[in-house]
Amino acid sequence: MRVIPAERITEAIKDLAIRANYDLGEDVLTALKNGRDSEESPVGREILDQLLENAEIAAKERVPMCQDTGYAAVFVEIGHDAFIEGDIQAAVDEGVRQGYEEGYLRKSIVGDPLRRKNTGDNTPAALTVEFVPGDKVTVTIAPKGGGSENMSMARQFAPAVGRQGVIDFVVNRVKESGSNPCPPVVVGVGIGGTFDLCARLAKKSLMRDIGIRHPDPFYAELELEILEQVNNLGIGPMGLGGKVTALDVHVEYYPCHIASLPVAVNMQCHAARHKTAVI
């Protein structure tokens, strides 16, 4: 059994929170450059140019690429042979607190959804803990902006709607979201599980790098088919019209009840911020 002090989690989260907000991922940069090359709309191309220039400024000047530095969505995968000594939620929250303060990141969390007083330090994180083989701990943070998160939707379908029903639901969701989630987006899709697990699958799919396909060819093909249909919608960069509406579509699935076909859509803006560290 490998013992890992909880402080190690705090340090990792602090560092990742800052880097996720300053440094656009290589996968995203490549996708935006490819999008710039294939976009037919002149306004769309200019928007993508601005985003590439923005990424350069943020990385060079060490400032957040977007003022919405997000809700800290954190995934911690703990190896069966690893033991974290201490309170994991507290360690993650402390990392968020330190990272958002030292990195001059915006504090965007209210402590209560109806009375809406800002917590002042961007805590708590939205933490998911999972158990995996091995003795490592993998920490991922995705600062989740409000604009894209607000376009999420989950629905319990009858199994009869099948594959086509899922495609129609996802494509329609992107269409209805239009300009709001800061396209070109990454579309996260959860299929199966229970109502709550399905939404989490959709969120988890956004932690995958752009361009990486689902390991199951059936789902990999589904991702590409949805991507093609989404990019035929004409929404384009910032919704002003164009070919590049999504940079990628990621699907995750899980076994579900014989009566159910849950589907959830969770979108990421064009920055698709996510950073991972292995401890």
């Binding site: 928007i47 943020a58 400032v63 690429m65 003022q67 604009g147 800061c182 803006c269």
Partner: peptide, 13 residues
């Protein structure tokens, strides 16, 4: 008007 969402470091200039 729309500004470019996410081009926040550029706009700050």
């Amino acid at each position: 008007f729309t500004a470019v969402g996410g081009a926040a470091a550029l706009i700050a200039r």
